[in-house]
Design a protein around this nucleic acid. Sequence first.
DNA 1: GACCAGGCACATC
DNA 2: GATGTGCATGGT
Length: 222
Amino acid sequence: MEASALALHRLFDTLLTAYGPRHWWPAPTVPAMMAGAILVQNTAWSGASQAVERLLAAGLLDSWPQLLATPEETLWALIRPAGFFRVKGERLKALARFLIDSGGDHDALFRLETPALRAALLGVHGVGKETADSILCYAADRPIFVVDAYTKRIFSRLGWCDDAVEYDALQRWVMDRFSGDAQRYGELHALLVEHAKLHCRTRPRCDGCPLLFCLRHPRMIP
DNA sequence: GACCAGGCACATC
DNA sequence: GATGTGCATGGT
C-alpha cells in the first residue's frame, strides 16, 4: 500500500481506538437525518438536535406536505435553537418541496444512482456539497466521504494539505485511499469531528493528541 | 462579554 | 473565479 494510504488508515485506526465507534448520524429516522443535515449547518449539533426533536414532536417529519404547509412563524419557533431560523426554515421547505416533487418521499428519491442523486440534492436551495454528502452517506447509505470544516482543519494542521484545500480535492484524495461502505466512511467522518472537537478547536489543545505521529508526513493532498 | 459552531447563497469585484 | 457578507442561537 502507498505511504499516504497507510498514513490515512493508521489515522482511522488510531481515532477508532481512541474514541470508539461514533454511531452517526444521531437522528432516529431518515427524514430526521435529512432535516438535521440542514439544521446543523454552521451550528453545533447540540442546537440542531433540539430543533430536530421539536420537529419530530410536532409530527412535521412524518409528512413533508405538512411541513410545507406549516406557517413560517410556527416553523421558525420550532427550529429557533438551531440558529439562522429564517434561512433554515426556507431550506427545510425547499427540501420538503423537492421530496414531494420526487415522488413523495425519500424511498422514491433514493432509487437514483449515487451520481444522479448527488446532483439532484445539489439542485435543492440550501443544499451544498457537505449537506448533500451527509445525506448520501448517512441517510441514503452511499459510500461517500463527507468533508467539513473540521476535516479540513485536521488535515491542514497535520501539514497534509493547505488550509485552503478544495472540497472536491480533499474528498477525492481520501476516497482514492480509503475504501469501504457507507458505514465505514461515515465512521471516518464522525471520528474526525470528534477528534477536532477535542483537539483542533481554533485554540488547539495538542496535549494528549493521538495524531501527533501523523505530523512527520509531508504535504500529500493537492 | 467575546468567541465559536458538523454551510450556504448571494453580491461584488 | 475569488473574496466578502448576512444569517442567529446557545454553549464555553
